[in-house]
């Protein structure tokens, strides 16, 4: 058996409301609030990036795992906002948690699926016996061009998971992946903001891949939606995960616990992994969880997790995701947001 032995999430304190963004661009806030089901989003402080959030989420994961960081064999950070174009995020994270130097580091990229990619590889490395523990992080300080629809949701956050074989808090019962070449969202080299194909990001991209991955894994494990206590899907907005859940046959009460986007925004590589942390915060032994990520370009990784009796021992060992989301919020205006996100051109 392999699975999760420690998890943690981190969300910056700053928030901006949809109304504040809509006010600047002269759009109708209600159409975004109702159309995308998003109320506000997290914004990183100027001194925060994918690496700093990964470190904080991993400190919480280490608290819950109780392991010596020196026993971690791999550190994989999945993100589309790695601070450096050339220099790994993983080495900084590994150094910050005291896991160096006998460690394998790599940075993963696959639009919003980079975090679940890292989780998938870590599980398999542990399963193969190559290492005792492996650390997977999904984190992003997501970019959205000013005035673009993405600006209403592009947010910041991180989720961290330590995979192992013993003392599991959630067993990885099965994994399944579903990929095609679908150009729905991209960012070319040297471009500051990503581009997307508007409505094309829906049916042939998000829905096709998530449904393909979900149906594939359900068939593989011979389970039905009603067998699961929780399900979490990638959350580019609040509406898509609820719609895809309904299409697959899940009920709202199975989806609500992991749904963070309406109050956090889309944390890209951190999205469904952070939803999983919110579920683990409340899960009980033997609960089954379906998680399906989605990354443009395009593909989905699906996981079936079975919660173990150890979950109740670790839930309170670090701050819970919804506590972090709901406490100590600092609402900012668009001007401050633009400054924090480097959207203001200054003199050289």
């Amino acid at each position: 058996m392999v699975g999760i032995i420690g998890y943690g999430a981190y969300i910056p304190r700053n928030r901006i409301k949809v109304e504040e963004i809509a006010k600047v661009w002269g759009t109708d806030a209600n159409s975004y609030r109702k159309g995308l089901f998003v109320e506000e989003k997290s914004v990183p402080s100027p001194d925060q990036d994918t690496i700093t959030m990964s470190v904080e989420a991993t400190h919480y994961a280490l608290k819950r795992s109780g392991i010596d960081p020196q026993k971690i064999g791999a550190v994989y950070v999945g993100s589309e906002s790695h601070p450096y174009a050339v220099k790994p995020s993983g080495t900084v994270l590994a150094e910050a948690i005291g896991a160096t130097p006998e460690i394998h580091c790599a940075d993963y990229e696959f639009a919003c699926k980079a975090g679940s990619e890292a989780m998938f590889v870590c599980l398999e490395l542990v399963r193969s016996g190559s290492m005792e523990y492996a650390l997977a992080v999904g984190a992003d300080t997501s970019q959205g061009a000013p005035g673009d629809a993405l600006e209403y949701t592009a947010a910041a956050g991180a989720a961290s998971f330590i995979m192992g074989k013993d003392n599991l808090l959630a067993e990885a019962v099965e994994t399944y992946s579903f990929m095609t070449d679908t150009p729905d969202f991209w960012r070319r080299e040297y471009q500051y903001y990503p581009r997307h194909a508007s409505r094309f990001t829906g049916e042939p991209a998000y829905f096709k891949h998530i449904i393909g991955a979900a149906k594939g894994i359900l068939k593989k494990v011979k389970l039905e939606p009603k067998d699961f206590k929780y399900a979490v899907f990638h959350q580019p907005n609040g509406k898509f995960p609820l719609k895809v859940g309904k299409l697959l046959g899940f009920k709202r009460e199975q989806l609500d616990t992991g749904l963070l986007c309406p109050w956090m925004g889309n944390t890209y590589s951190g999205s469904s992994p952070m939803g999983l942390t919110a579920i683990l915060d409340e899960a009980k032994p033997d609960d089954l969880i379906l998680m399906v990520s989605y990354g443009s370009g395009a593909g989905s990784d699906a996981f079936v997790w079975k919660v173990t009796s150890r979950i109740t021992e670790v839930q309170d060992k670090a701050p819970k995701t919804k506590e972090i989301l709901n406490n100590n919020k600092n609402y900012i205006e668009y001007g401050t947001y633009a400054k924090y996100r480097g959207k203001i051109r200054k003199a050289e």
Binding site: S45, P46, D47, Q48, D49, I51, T52, V55, E56, P83, Y84, K87, A96
Partner: peptide, 13 residues
């Protein structure tokens, strides 16, 4: 854990 400062646009963080 935070960024303390950047060494300009092209330097280390």
């Amino acid at each position: 854990f935070r960024k303390i400062y950047n060494e300009g646009e092209a330097g280390i963080i």
